[in-house]
Design a protein around this nucleic acid. Structure first.
Lengths: 132, 132
DNA sequence: CAGGATCCATAGGGATACTG
DNA sequence: CAGTATCCCTATGGATCCTG
């Protein structure tokens, strides 16, 4: 496909640390406030309606949930299937690409949950030392 | 320690999806704009000076880098060692706790880098379909 | 039900200049 | 060198009301 016959599949100069690298925009979306939670919810319940998501992800507003879902859809992480009817029904699910995200994303989720206490303790200690 | 003699070590009701759960604040810090990059940098180079970090993490301003490092220090992820001298020298490194983060965090980083092209392609396709 | 529309608040973060 | 100090801006996200 390319004129370069060397390094056939190692052609990933992508680097988060480089400011011009597009992978940064990818990373930023992955770290959007609600993205990890949507991934978490959809990895537990493979397909979910809008209001199911809204209920399971406590505290998210409909507007922002929509925004984030759209962004994820645009990035190819999520599918949106509309079933025209009354009342309307829209189902969200992870794409194959999105599914490959669940492992790393849930790992991060677990880290946050598992180390919550340690982090909280560290914060207290830090705040004490540095004069509340 | 507790009056509850059951489920001795399963006492982690931490859940990202619950709005009141403190793990959310942990997660939010993990997904701060520059946190993943600092973890990436410090996992490659175990100890680094301020300006080294600033150079390796392209585009970060000194102010925001300081902010993020402070926040990570407070959360117990990073140590800050000052060597008083002229010129001053400050070294940053991951704590043991912070080190346990490198795996999940770098997994996410790799995902972003490895799937960059796919995501970019998905975006283009989406934008075309939905009238640029 | 699934959002779109609107208005609004704030905090995250950028640029620059300065200092111990 | 390793930051602070300032000023500023806009993008993220919250609240509320409305609609196909």
């Amino acid at each position: 496909m390319s004129t370069n016959t060397e390094t056939p599949h190692t052609d990933s100069p992508a680097n988060i640390l480089a400011s011009a690298c597009p992978s940064r925009t990818v990373m930023r979306h992955l770290t959007d406030r609600w993205t990890p939670m949507i991934v978490a919810a959809l990895s537990e319940e493979p397909t979910a309606r809008f209001s199911e998501l809204k209920d399971r992800i406590q505290g998210v507003s409909p507007k922002v949930l929509t925004q984030t879902l759209r962004s994820m859809e645009r990035d190819g992480l999520v599918t949106r299937k509309v079933t025209a009817a009354m009342p309307p029904r829209v189902d969200y699910a992870l794409t194959p690409l999105g599914t490959t995200l669940t492992a790393p994303m849930n790992a991060l989720r677990r880290w946050a949950q598992d180390h919550m206490a340690e982090v909280l303790a560290a914060r207290e200690k830090y705040d004490q030392k540095n004069a509340l």
